[in-house]
Design a protein around this nucleic acid. Structure first.
Lengths: 123, 123, 123, 123
DNA sequence: GTGGTCTAGACCACT
DNA sequence: GTGGTCTAGACCACG
């Protein structure tokens, strides 16, 4: 897990997003252990509390779950993972479409989604 | 000027971005007066200080300038405006490409820029 | 707001519960400001972060909301408040019924709810 | 012995409570052998240390006692058992009364205890 | 003054 | 070693 932090958003949200994306692109698989709080904190050079904060959000959303004394693990619900990926794609595309329209282009989410269909690494 | 505020970013940055985008898409033209601090503050239901903060950033970047007693105006330098638009587009596209690749697609800025060429409202 | 902390549960959850109950019994009314993070922290002699943690849960559940720079306020949605109260009552009653049955009584939630009907301070 | 664990409290306390309640409702009788640490650990899918921890608490409170090489047994003191049950009932009722009053009802332990009198499975 | 974020450092329960 | 909670103390953005 490697993250280049951006000043515009809280670090804990960026960590959460990074983990979500790692799951979405299949780097972290269903049921697999996610990096421990302390381990990831050291790797990212942030405080363990910050990682903990990030993980709590993911737990709340049901994306990962805790096994007491063992660590945190990616949800085993395939539907959850699928929904997560679709949700992320939707957000990214809609955000792009909104922003690019705001600077004077006429493009729709449909245009982008069609372009993406042939670019999916997982297909 | 109408903005749907997103809680995750400071309001003053969102206002600044909105003004930049209005200039980029030609809604605010070179040399044209931008809404007064007070006026915009009322319209957006925010504190005048917040709008002032946003404008100061734009002034610092040379995108708008102040005529004492008359208000703030869009820069009259065509190069400035053009660069602003290209810069915004570049940022938006690169941000999109980075994010969409992070969830498992293989797409390049070039792919998107080609798609955009035929969608420019100004051409 | 006064709370006698119980060792069996995290403090931040107990603070959250106390605020919920204050809302449920009408002590904190719709739209009313809840104590500021710092203020409540001093009153309860806990760290502000702990109160913050408690409030974040309530915000996430839509029970209170934040006005930037002004503080946190009780939700203005009457339905939300009503649901909150009913939810709390349900939890308390079901918890009691489960526990009392575990020590050898045959009693149902219905029995308790009938008894409660005539004891509601708000009616 | 079957327990639905609640994440908010230490497992060993929940195990201890479950045993106490089994004794209170007469499922485990005076002098009777309680499940062995190993056996219960397997049944509940927890670490034997956790069960051991729970039993140590019960031993300390004089509710069960150890016969070397034979296992743990429910106290043979009838007064102990009776007190245990009354103590549990008292705690459960008082806890309920306190909580339900906190959400806006006016009810007393007496009200509940009267209701309970006719519902005792043991009478 | 308000909430939000972050760090450093500590202690606890559970496996 | 793992997550969870808590304190102390700091800085920032916003109104």
């Amino acid at each position: 897990m490697k993250i280049k932090f951006d000043e515009s958003k809280p670090i804990y949200l960026q960590i959460g997003d990074a983990v979500k994306k790692a799951i979405a692109r299949g780097e972290l698989k269903m049921g697999e252990k996610v990096p421990s709080v302390r381990e990831l904190a050291i790797e990212l050079k942030v405080n363990p509390n910050t990682v903990q904060h990030a993980y709590q959000e993911l737990i709340r959303e049901g994306i990962i779950f805790t096994k007491r004394g063992q660590g945190n693990f990616v949800s085993q619900d395939p539907e959850k993972i699928k929904t997560l990926r679709q949700q992320l794609i939707k957000e990214i595309v809609e955000n792009f479409v909104r922003e690019i329209n705001e600077v004077g282009f006429s493009i729709s989410s449909k245009d982008i989604l069609e372009l993406l269909e042939e670019k999916d690494d997982r297909s």
